[in-house]
Nucleic acid binder design. Structure first.
Lengths: 204, 204
DNA sequence: TTGTCTAATGACCAGACAGTCATTAGACTG
DNA sequence: CAGTCTAATGACTGTCTGGTCATTAGACAA
């Protein structure tokens, strides 16, 4: 036994898994799931193909792991920061900001994330599991808006649609960042989003 | 020569092309590009595999044709209806409404459309051509907002970001429709979108 | 040094599939 | 009916790649 009650064994395994996952993320992000070969991932990770299969049972599982890990981390961070503020407006801001900042830190992940998002419409049979990954985000937003409405902070708007709108606006802004346009201060994008959702485009 | 100055030849060819394209749309919509096989398309179209290649040179080309045709028709209809109204608000409404109504009419097309949209991030090398398909829509929106701002109809907001926002809100609402939720009157979705963009969520 | 044990390797296999092309069906003509 | 011509066919091929497994390298123990 060593640190944190883990055997040396376990630590090495964990490390290898992480290495492979990191390589996989890079390759998947650049070429998408189908165009990526296991050999490429192995090469990027600096190991042989067989080694990959010592740590993951299949190509889909690697993809899934890469996606899942990021989504979980992002979701945890998001809930944390959303919970840390009071007003609904600040919560929405926290939601958008967390995502955009996370995007700047983990570009590769977001390429996979949003690619997978569209598998929901015409993808593999696992689409239900994929859907679940996004549902939790939409639910979070929906609850925020329900609460905000109950407290009279926002007017009477369909929460489900509102959640979708915020989710997608964020997607759009992030996509633009990733494509190179609008690379500057995340704050600009965040301000824009919150501002639009709050007061719309009407002249004041 | 017959109708419209076309030979019988050309008419038959056109008809076959359309038949194949229709079948392809269905299959692509259900399984995505990579999971679809030419054999499946052939079967769905009621022809043999070889026949497909008499009309299209490759699988990608079929996909491209299915996408292109829909995008062109949608864009034409959109510009027509946007041009038919005066105020910026009505133009935005026309934009969103056209898309949502077109979606109800051509579900399969939209599955392909939004799947392809996310290839922009991590897809095939043709991603630039794909990007162009969406650019024209964003440009249309951007011009609408520029004009609206010039005429004092809307406040001073970044047009490019606004275009992205409207595009993505629409995508979100349509995706929800396609997934079965919120299947009702398109008008509800349209009203929601225009309302949100115009006045936001602030209590009035 | 020798023996043991396991993590890593990469040649190999089997299935899938895009695209081809020699053959055929059957429409049309005279 | 015989002859011609072309649209359609589907068996076939070459390639690609996910996944396997017999072999090896090299760490560690005695």
């Amino acid at each position: 036994m060593t640190l944190q009650g883990k055997t040396k064994q376990q630590i090495v395994t964990e490390f290898r898994c992480a290495e492979i996952l990191e390589a996989a993320r890079t390759v998947f992000a650049g070429k998408g799931f189908d165009a990526t070969t296991i050999d490429e991932i192995a090469h990027a990770a600096g190991v042989a193909k067989g080694t990959i299969y010592l740590y993951y049972p299949s190509k889909r599982e690697i993809y899934w792991a890469a996606l899942q890990a990021g989504v979980d981390e992002l979701y945890a961070e998001t809930t944390r920061r959303v919970a840390a503020v009071e007003s609904t407006r600040d919560k929405v801001r926290a939601f958008v900001q967390t995502k955009i900042e996370y995007c700047d830190l983990h570009r590769d992940f977001f390429c996979i994330y949003y690619s997978a998002a569209s598998e929901v419409l015409s993808g593999p049979p696992e689409r239900l599991e994929v859907t679940a990954l996004y549902r939790q985000q939409l639910d979070l937003l929906e609850r925020m808006f329900e609460a905000g409405r109950a407290r009279g902070e926002i007017r009477d708007v369909d929460s489900a649609r509102l959640a979708v709108a915020v989710f997608e606006i964020t997607r759009g802004l992030i996509t633009h960042r990733l494509l190179g346009r609008a690379g500057g201060d995340p704050r600009h994008d965040v301000d824009f989003a919150v501002d639009l959702i709050w007061t719309g485009v009407t002249r004041t």
